[in-house]
Design a protein around this nucleic acid. Structure first.
Lengths: 109, 109
DNA sequence: CAGAATCCTTAAAGATACTG
DNA sequence: CAGTATCTTTAAGGATTCTG
């Protein structure tokens, strides 16, 4: 979770704080493809527990990265999507993804 | 620390694994300015303990990000610097730094 | 279905002291 | 100077159960 804006020394530190959490970048990646429901996200991230997924989503929501919309249906129905800020964060992450693919993932392939 | 290349689902995850550690991006930033000695790094990162700094440096060295050169002098003298891979990682981190500055740090200034 | 509540495990980090 | 060796602390994450 992000702290107060004054608590950082550089932008990277601030950004890292927001995506700090085992499944945060996975969530960003999953929501980059469109609107997803809670159960969909859970299936897209094999191994994540409900508790951790819920708390990560709540933190991302508080940081303005994710929008949460609860539909008043029975049974409950909640949709998650990226805010414009979330989209921009995803874009800023793209070079890092390319770096990882080129230098780490392709090392043995 | 980076695991085996096959253990990741995307490049971001692999990159995040390498810079995972409270002071790793700080070390990258400090070494981006040039060669530094152990004691210099410690002073540049207020709050880091010797143990954590040493282990972070060892991990970054194993991941090929940092080069360690021990000079055979008395008293001991060890110089740390970025490898070409480390420089490229620092470059890939730049967009994220800009994002953090624009969207988080400047939020209250 | 989408979570909240509770309890539990364990790695990462911190503190402190010591040394080639 | 540049670490290593222990010990302790903490907080993220996991497992399980329960509910509007």
């Amino acid at each position: 979770m992000a702290k107060r804006p004054g608590a950082y020394h550089c932008g990277t530190e601030a950004a890292m704080d927001i995506i700090d959490g085992k499944w945060k970048v996975g969530i960003l990646w999953a929501l980059g493809e469109g609107v997803r429901r809670f159960g969909e996200l859970r299936r897209m991230l094999p191994g994540v527990t409900e508790k951790v997924l819920a708390s990560h989503l709540r933190e991302l929501e508080q940081d303005g990265i994710v929008r949460r919309e609860a539909l008043p249906t029975v049974p409950p129905h909640v949709e998650y999507s990226l805010t414009p800020l979330g989209v921009s964060l995803n874009d800023a992450l793209a070079p890092l993804a390319r770096w990882g693919e080129q230098h780490i993932l392709s090392a043995v392939r």
